[in-house]
């Protein structure tokens, strides 16, 4: 089966602070078939997202499939609190790239 990076199927892949101790990622679709293919395709799971960031899966704090919004949502525990010494992304808004590059099955 051929595969594509997630960003070629999703309309939006974004990251953002959800409070100072979490970064939340939203993967959003406008096409229902694409949403369902990614939702059910097994390539985007807590385990694969953790692997994309070199995190232990215990650092994935939640994972949601939101049919009403045709979206997947995954949240990680921030390795460093927002604004702590050594931290590099105050809004958590530039953490989406490893996620958007995860290979998902082509439709």
């Amino acid at each position: 089966m051929t595969s594509l990076p997630l960003y070629q199927l999703a309309d939006i892949v974004r990251s953002k602070n959800a409070g100072p101790y979490r970064i939340t990622f939203d993967i959003m679709f406008t096409d229902k078939a694409r949403y369902e293919a990614v939702r059910d395709g097994g390539a985007i799971t807590p385990e694969t997202v953790a692997a994309a960031y070199g995190l232990d899966v215990s650092q994935i704090s939640s994972f949601f499939k939101i049919d009403q919004a045709m979206a997947l949502k995954v949240t990680i525990v921030r390795p460093r609190a927002q604004g702590a010494a050594g931290e590099g992304d105050m809004y958590g808004c530039q953490h989406h790239v490893p996620l958007m590059n995860i290979a998902v099955p082509a439709m």
């Binding site: 939203d26 704090s61 949502k73």
Partner: peptide, 13 residues
Amino acid sequence: VAAHSLYERENPF
């Protein structure tokens, strides 16, 4: 609107 209901929060429900 649905997109915004997910924004900056962990649990959508």
